[in-house]
Design a protein around this nucleic acid. Structure first.
Length: 598
RNA sequence: GUCGGGGUAGCUCAGCGGUAGAGCAAACGGCUCAUAAUCGUUAGGUCGCGGGUUCAAAUCCCGCCCCCGACACCA
């Protein structure tokens, strides 16, 4: 009786390695959510990929004298590796430069165009004198016509704060090569957002389960909708699928229009790769499916307004949705059920900034620390409701004083005692009232933590699991089974059985957050099989001959369930080892020195 | 500038109309099975500033200060 849950995760932009702020905002939260729903027995489809079009990638390519594709290839590889090492369990993590993605994007563009939702309009654009490419407003600087500030940007003056138009700048010049930009008339395509305004307004008004800031912000945004340009004068992007643009390389679909389509195209790719090409419809053309989108606060409206408009316009038409048969026929593509946006992570009190060296890359952290240590920090101290600060001393403290001391130590003291004294799960005698009470409280975590995760309150969920772990520590301190065993071996066996049973429950409660250590614990407890198994990369070749790598996993074979488990009495334990590593205080200094050095 | 979010104990954060909360840090005590881990007790805040509404405000309203984001061609 599982539900169909689409977990749609923001697409990291492939112009560099990603820092921990990115995975804090949407990576770890979305993975917690997906893993939880799989344990619940729901049908989860978790998709994302690298976003590989747009101006910044072309600039990086120019700078290095390579092709945009080469830049995208390099960083797609690095970003995919990061997500793999962090254990983010995508069903499909692909890329926007696949043939499949181009086809889906073009079908949506073409369908919206034919249905009259895309307008054509002449606009005045700024172009680089040297390359002829579009110069985005923010890449133009000049003197502010209002305050005279010499380094005002084309979109805004940082000195007086006024919004500007690049044509108004005095002595405008390109930030890239210093040349004055060339202004000329150029045709662009616009998504006619105002025609969706009424439907958007009614739809969003009904979404009372959205976080209040997302909902009110979106409602406010749609009060002043204007047609939005969805093409750019660039040679890097998805080609415009109209006859008059066939073979032309000067105008492409805008990166934001195609990036959100990735949620759909990746789902279609997943189904195809799996050999069940229509399976994506179970999520996208199933009125009971629920779609959850995870992203940073900077791109709420792309998910709450613009992407829904694209979906409303496409509806049940076009090549993909329109080819549905049977129960899926005429069913429109489903709109988001919830938009889970995060705030931002800062670093030692400052905004992350790659160019200024204020940055901690994911691969850098994972080369020295366990993924669960980072996942723990991001889950319990991440920017869920407000900006939060990452500091190395806080990272070390959370790891040592909370993860290691409370949960790691509970597991370690329990396993080493039982392994040494009994070797297998000891048979309990009659449980006392207190024993039953503790078990009931810990098992209550499936309801309380589960409810918090469903509401995307991840900090609250993992805090509750930690609280339950410390209750078991208290229980052991009070019961003192290491003393009891000297007089009453049967009672000591019972106490250790109770503790071990609780550890077995906590293992499951922690699985969405700390999959690597929960899997190890699962094995120490003598179980076989995966509750959180390995992820894998698979290579897929498309019709035109190029291949790309997809991050995925065999999640259907995992065996954990989000419900109390019964540890079999007599099950032999395996030789235990500490679940987590305690970090030396020295790492704080070392890491800070490393930051200064970069 | 306009709109939205945030400013709560030394630190990181929760609470968001009804006698100020958690974790860590601090002080004291217990335990010694466990990665010198753990358990208990105590201490610690005029909840950014100034007004207002209310029997009652961290919580609602108004103004101000500071931080963050959006404001359409950066993603």
């Amino acid at each position: 009786m599982g539900e169909h849950i689409l977990v749609a995760v923001a697409w990291p932009y492939a112009n560099g390695p990603r820092h921990i702020g990115h995975v804090a905002g949407f990576g770890v939260p979305s993975d917690i959510f997906a893993r939880y729903h799989r344990l619940k027995g729901n049908y989860v489809l978790m998709v994302s990929g690298t976003d590989e079009h747009g101006t910044p990638i072309t600039l990086a390519a120019d700078k290095e004298g390579v092709t945009p594709q080469a830049i995208a290839d390099r960083y797609s590889q690095i970003i995919g590796d990061d997500l793999y090492h962090l254990g983010l369990s995508y069903d499909t993590f692909t890329r926007t430069t696949t043939l499949n993605h181009y086809r889906v994007t073009q079908d949506i563009f073409k369908t919206l165009y034919e249905k009259g939702y895309i307008l054509r309009q002449e606009t005045l654009g700024a172009f680089s004198a040297s390359t002829g490419r579009t110069l985005p407003d923010r890449y133009i600087e000049g003197t502010c016509p209002i305050c005279g500030y010499h380094e005002a940007r084309g979109d805004q003056c940082d000195n007086c704060g006024h919004q500007l138009d690049p044509i108004d700048l005095i002595n405008p010049r390109s930030k890239i090569d210093g040349q004055p930009p060339v202004f000329k008339e150029t045709e662009q395509f616009f998504l006619d957002l105002p025609v969706f305004a009424d439907r958007l307004q009614k739809w969003i008004t009904r979404q009372t389960h959205w976080r209040p800031n997302v909902r009110s912000f979106s409602l406010n945004f749609i009060k002043e909708l204007k047609p939005r340009p969805i093409t750019r004068d660039l040679d890097w992007g998805v080609p415009i699928p109209l006859p008059e643009y066939a073979g032309r390389d000067d105008k492409k679909i805008y990166v934001w229009f195609d990036a959100v389509i990735g949620y759909l195209s990746a789902s279609i790719e997943w189904a195809k790769n799996r050999g069940t090409p229509d399976a994506w419809r179970d999520w996208w053309q199933n009125r009971r499916a629920r779609h959850y989108y995870f992203m940073g606060k900077d791109n709420i409206v792309f998910h709450s307004v613009i992407w829904p408009s694209q979906l409303m316009g496409y509806f049940s038409d076009g090549f993909y949705a329109g080819s549905a048969a049977g129960a899926f026929a005429e069913v429109p593509l489903q709109l988001p059920h919830n938009i889970v946006s995060s705030e931002f992570l800062t670093m030692e009190g400052k905004k992350f900034s790659s160019s200024r060296g204020v940055v901690i890359y994911v691969n850098d952290v994972l080369s020295r620390y366990d993924p669960d240590a980072l996942r723990y920090f991001l889950a319990i101290a991440g920017p869920e409701n407000q900006d939060t600060d990452f500091t190395w001393s806080e990272f070390v403290r959370r790891n040592n004083d909370e993860l290691v001391a409370t949960w790691g130590n509970l597991v370690n003291r329990t396993l080493t005692n039982v392994y040494k004294n009994f070797g297998s799960v000891p048979a309990p005698e009659t449980l006392t009232e207190g024993d039953h009470a503790l078990i009931a409280t810990v098992e209550g975590g499936f309801a309380t933590c589960g409810e918090a995760i469903e509401q995307a309150r991840f900090k609250s969920a993992i805090s509750e699991a930690m609280r339950l772990a410390s209750l078991v520590n208290t229980y052991l301190s009070e019961q003192e089974p290491w003393k009891v065993i000297k007089q009453d071996r049967a009672r000591a066996a019972t106490i250790w059985y109770v503790a071990l049973h609780c550890v077995d429950q906590l293992k499951l409660l922690f699985t969405p957050f700390l999959p690597f250590s929960s899997q190890r614990l699962h094995e120490y407890l003598g179980y076989d099989g995966f509750i959180a198994g390995p992820l894998e990369f698979r290579e897929y070749t498309e019709e035109h001959g190029t291949s790309h790598r997809v991050l995925t996993g065999d999640y259907e074979s995992w065996i954990g369930r989000w419900e109390p488990s019964s540890l079999p009495v007599g099950q032999p334990l395996r030789q235990p080892a500490p679940l987590f590593k305690k970090l030396d205080e020295q790492v704080v200094e070392d890491e800070l020195a490393r930051l200064m050095g970069t």
